[in-house]
Design a protein around this nucleic acid. Structure first.
Lengths: 345, 345
DNA sequence: ATGAAAGCGCTAACAC
DNA sequence: GTGTTAGCGCTTTCAT
């Protein structure tokens, strides 16, 4: 039943087989110069014959270049984080890096040791997808311990942190929310309500800024959890109120929850109520009615975060940001408010 | 700008500080017996003072117990894989294991070396979330190379493989699809069409079995990609055909695509057309109309996969499967076919 | 262009 | 109980 696992082949085995020293093998493996073409060929043949693969632990321990990234994130099943992770993975595997994922529980409080202990070793490169309190804390701990090997993605507020340019791939959450709110206002809504997800305070800032600039006093924010269900529950009061004609939501999932609640409250979309999401998740286009939202290129952000990290690690020119800028996508859940009162004309 | 990264503290530093040998520190760190309480306390104090954290690479290299798992999967943004991954992560981090994620591109063909080279070292424990050709191939390669350290999740067809009991956490895709199809048949549909996603042949098997047992000749399967959009496109012909009264879909996302296409084709749900999904993703309950689907406990499967791996690694009693069995969840997209023909009464 | 020696931080095996 | 000695597989530095 339990097959014997053959002893793995090491650099020395290859060396013996090729009739050279293990050091020469190392040179070949690492594409170092100063190896005769003939020797190189012999070694490569031996590597192929034996099926040799370098041991990453040994390489890391010996102080070789680290080719792995640890990604700290708080929920791999949310659209935004999943896509960011995908972007990181794409870029990382193209560059021959291994990706380690370390999931942080928002409910838990981690000590410095907890966070740093998740790295394979001190100084291991890391990317933090920072979107809530716990991940922000992890970002601070990691940046403090090893500033040269940590980059993060997060909202534009982080731009205020020291040297943010060097380590941040920012998403302008404030601007995104502001633009969406302004659009709703431009359709003629008297005000826009905001359904907030945990963290992500900047989206709320953008929303209230847009209102204030238009001379409107923002209503109190309604708070939701991360799930569609919690959004549906949180929005129950909002959708029941005929005075509410426009709701902007922290993300698409929350918007779907609101839409569900609105439907069950008998409100017609967008006649009675405009709803706008954020993220442009795949469902947004295929929901009926189509969800108006803002396209956010999380995958591009992930790729950029990796490139930035690599530049920090290996030097070289600062990579230029390579993600699409956010774009409002108007579909069918938004429109002008229906005329009310006794004189529709 | 670039702060000096302090030299990491090693076991020897702790040993010196505590006035013991590095070996004693190792014993304390690994909770080995044979350490005097007083010594243990001294060492723990030194560890805390110095902020010492063990180096995983060194530990792995020195042959200590490996506390990491590499998860091979093909798309972390799909609901099923994302949830399975979450389950693995939950169980793994509770057990003090690090999770590494290795994403395989379905479009690519990997050599044995490519796959094995993604492990941190030969023999490193791995879990394969096997749901398509590429991941199945990875599973075979890994199982062959190191049978003692690889488990997989996948459909029940794998039960036919040698020793499957020892390494497989099966999801009975055949039964799930069969049950859903039977339910549709029981509502009075003359036949049920199937919209397939790539791979996952067993769901198709279950569907056709149910039909054959009912004496119905299955129609040709319609094939879709993984995205909602591809499902909507693939289902265009199906939803345009008034003879089609029931469609079972490979998963919920495909079902949403079908629903979208059906809506645009002007068909009413479930009057003209019943649609059933698979997975019970969070959206299913909040879609309007609510999607009839089958609840699959991917998170439980992930947890079980990890527990099984751990048992393989460390011995001990075989863990009993700890995931909810699939359950049909009837919501609003399914019902009896509307009476047709000239004499409704 | 190649080899030899040293050591990364840790655990295992054996001493005391 | 605790310390000592050897490596694990690799990359460095320094010879040659």
């Amino acid at each position: 039943m339990s097959a014997a696992e053959p002893k793995p082949v090491s650099m020395f085995d290859v060396a013996r087989r090729a009739g050279v020293s293990h050091q020469t093998v190392s040179r070949v493996v690492n594409d170092a110069p100063m190896v005769a073409a003939a020797t190189r060929a012999k070694v490569k043949a031996a590597i192929a014959d034996l099926g040799y693969r370098p041991n990453r632990s040994a390489r890391t321990l010996a102080g070789g270049t680290v080719r792995s990234v640890t990604v700290f994130t708080f929920d791999t099943s949310l659209y935004g984080t999943a896509e960011t992770l995908r972007g990181i993975e794409d870029a990382a595997s193209a560059a021959g890096f291994t990706v380690l994922v370390s999931v942080l529980d928002p409910e838990q409080t981690y000590t410095e040791g907890d966070i740093l202990g998740r790295l394979s070793h001190d100084g291991a490169p890391a990317i933090v997808i920072a979107h809530d309190e716990t991940t922000h804390r992890a970002r601070r701990i990691l940046r403090k311990a090893q500033p040269g090997a940590v980059v993060a993605t997060g909202d534009d507020m982080l731009l205020a942190e020291p040297d943010a340019d060097d380590w941040l791939v920012p998403l302008d959450d404030r601007l995104v929310a502001k633009r969406a709110t302004k659009y709703l206002l431009s359709m003629g809504h008297r005000t826009v309500h905001y359904l907030a997800m945990p963290g992500k305070a900047r989206r709320q800032d953008g929303w209230s800024e847009a209102l204030v600039e238009a001379g409107i006093e923002p209503h109190e924010v309604v708070r939701s959890g991360w799930t569609i269900g919690s959004a549906a529950a949180a929005a129950a009061g909002l959708v029941a109120d005929p005075e509410v004609t426009a709701i902007m939501c922290g993300n698409d999932d929350l918007a779907f929850g609101v839409l569900h609640a609105a439907h069950h409250a008998g409100r017609s979309i967008p006649g009675d109520l405009s709803v706008i999401g954020c993220d442009d998740s795949p469902m947004a286009a295929y929901h009926v009615p189509g969800l108006t939202t803002v396209d956010l290129d999380f995958r591009g952000v992930g790729r950029s975060a990796f490139e930035l990290l690599r530049q920090r690690l290996e030097g070289g020119p600062k990579p230029r940001p390579a993600w699409r800028s956010p774009e409002l996508i108007v579909r069918e859940t938004s429109g002008p408010p229906r005329q009310r009162g006794p004189h529709p004309l």
